[in-house]
Simulated assay, not measured.
Amino acid sequence: MRSLDAHSDGVTSIAISPDGKRIVTGGISTPTMKVWDLRTFLMLKGESGHTQPVETVAISSDGKLIASGSDDRTIKLWDLHTLKLLDTITAHSGFVSKVAFSPDMQTLVSAGGGDDNTIRLIDLQTKKTRHILKGHKTGVDAIAITPDSKKLVTGSFGQLVSRNRAISTLKLWNLQTGKLLHEFTDNFNSVESLAISPDGKILICGNYDGSIKLW
């Protein structure tokens, strides 16, 4: 349909608004987050609030907020319609690899990369960290939240035990309490991507070895 010359280098993340009218993109080469009109394919604004490349972007389920995470170790919240900066949250000691809004709009989940292997559960009202989840041995590369906002799945590169084998790569958490509910010890590959079916019954995991696993 259309090809957008969005960023001068790799596109790190894409989010689409619930009404299907806007997309937000992050790029690896610049600290700029861009917002596009999906009907006209024109760029509405390029925001450079970050000082380093934008690793991840997300749009809230109510279509009002954008969250962007950057190599500058901050998360920024933006108004999707006015594109004004609302808050800056410093949550990780390393770069911010992933951000996601819970469907119930109560929690912002962020994942750390580099030397920070934690996941932060941030209260969207107070902007304070409610829980810090630990257990991954390396940076978290993927996160997914169940449609009922009760559970969180996280995936990482994992702790390598041999050239083609990694452990501690895939975990299930209680999103309210931060408690670890299950560790998928039968997943021996580093995790690249995660998705949960709309009915919340199936977890899909894309692994570094090219395989897709379903639970």
Rank of each mutant, 00 (worst) to 15 (best):
A100W: 03
A91Y: 06
A91E: 07
A91V: 14
F101C: 03
T129H: 07
K128N: 02
K128W: 10
H131N: 03
S93H: 11
T88D: 10
S93D: 15
D104N: 15
D87F: 14
Q125N: 14
T118H: 12
P103S: 12
L86S: 09
V96H: 08
P103H: 08
P103C: 12
I119T: 01
I89A: 06
R120V: 03
M105K: 12
S102N: 11
G113H: 00
I89S: 07
I119E: 00
D104T: 09
D116S: 03
T118I: 02
I122S: 08
L86M: 13
F95P: 01
T107R: 08
L121N: 00
T126G: 03
T88L: 13
D104G: 10
T90W: 14
K98C: 12
V99I: 03
Q125C: 11
G94K: 04
Q106F: 01
V96P: 01
R130C: 01
M105S: 12
K137E: 14
A111E: 05
G113V: 07
H92N: 03
I122L: 14
T118W: 01
V109L: 10
D104I: 10
H131S: 00
T126C: 00
G113N: 02
I122Q: 01
H92K: 02
T129K: 05
K128L: 15
K128S: 08
V109I: 15
T107K: 09
K98N: 15
S110F: 09
G114N: 06
I89Y: 05
T88P: 08
D123G: 08
R120P: 03
S97I: 01
S110R: 04
A91C: 14
I122G: 00
I89H: 04
F95K: 11
D87S: 13
H131F: 10
A100D: 04
M105D: 10
T118E: 07
I132K: 01
R130W: 04
P103R: 12
D87R: 13
G94A: 07
S93R: 12
G114M: 06
R120G: 00
G114T: 02
D87H: 15
A111M: 01
D115H: 13
H131G: 04
V96Q: 09
F95Y: 15
D115N: 15
K127V: 08
V96G: 05
V99L: 04
I119S: 06
D87E: 15
R120K: 15
I122C: 05
T126R: 10
S110P: 07
T88F: 10
K127R: 13
D115R: 13
G113D: 01
D116A: 01
G114Y: 05
K127F: 13
K137D: 13
I119W: 02
T129P: 01
G112Q: 02
L108Y: 08
D104A: 07
I89K: 06
L108M: 11
